[in-house]
Simulated assay, not measured.
Amino acid sequence: MSTAFTTRTLEITTGTSETVADLTADCAAFLREAADGRDGLLNIFVPHATAGIAVLETGAGSDEDLLAALHDLLPADNRWRHRHGSPGHGRDHVLPALVPPHATLPVVSGRMALGTWQSVCLVDTNVDNANRQVRLSFLG
């Protein structure tokens, strides 16, 4: 069996508010080219110290619930030792410990093997950096 490795970097603008950005369509488009109907693995990685990748339901309030839960766990106040940027920015640097900067998903016949309501999302609480990169890599 031949194996192939293909990678692409997405440029994502998240804006000036905390964001859960759905990347599912971008991942599917990448796999249509990279996987070409093959089985394998898709790795999604965000090379930033203040963002993460989550697999969750979107559009039914779960994305807002995630941001609310992160506010409860990581309040944007002055308790953080890391103190530059917006007030509470230190919490953004703790985020990847809770929402990791990567996810690896099975790919079957060129498609992500996601559950019915699952989406691949970039979670970005850092309002000081609106420009993000997300690296998609397919091994199959």
Rank of each mutant, 00 (worst) to 15 (best):
S2I: 13
A4W: 14
T6Q: 14
R8D: 12
T9G: 08
T9A: 14
I12N: 03
G15D: 15
T16Y: 13
S17M: 13
E18V: 05
E18S: 01
V20W: 04
V20D: 04
A21W: 14
A21P: 11
D22L: 09
T24K: 03
E33F: 13
A35D: 05
G37T: 10
G37F: 09
G37W: 11
R38D: 14
D39Y: 10
D39N: 11
G40S: 00
L41P: 09
L41V: 13
N43Q: 14
I44P: 04
F45Y: 14
T50Q: 05
I53K: 10
E57N: 13
T58N: 14
G59A: 07
A60M: 06
G61R: 10
S62A: 08
L66M: 07
L66E: 01
L67W: 02
L67C: 03
A68S: 10
A69R: 06
L70N: 05
H71D: 15
D72N: 13
L73A: 00
L74I: 00
A76I: 00
A76L: 04
A76Q: 03
D77L: 01
W80N: 00
W80V: 01
R83P: 04
G85V: 09
P87W: 09
P87T: 06
H89Y: 03
G90L: 08
G90Q: 08
R91E: 08
D92P: 07
H93Q: 03
A97P: 01
P100R: 02
P101K: 06
P101M: 06
H102G: 10
A103D: 07
T104H: 02
T104A: 02
T104N: 02
R111P: 09
R111Q: 15
G115Y: 05
T116P: 03
W117G: 00
L122A: 10
V123K: 01
V123T: 02
D124G: 04
N126W: 12
V127A: 03
V127L: 07
V127F: 05
D128N: 02
N129D: 11
R135W: 03
L136Y: 11
S137W: 11
S137T: 15
S137M: 08
F138Y: 06
F138G: 00
L139Q: 10
L139N: 11
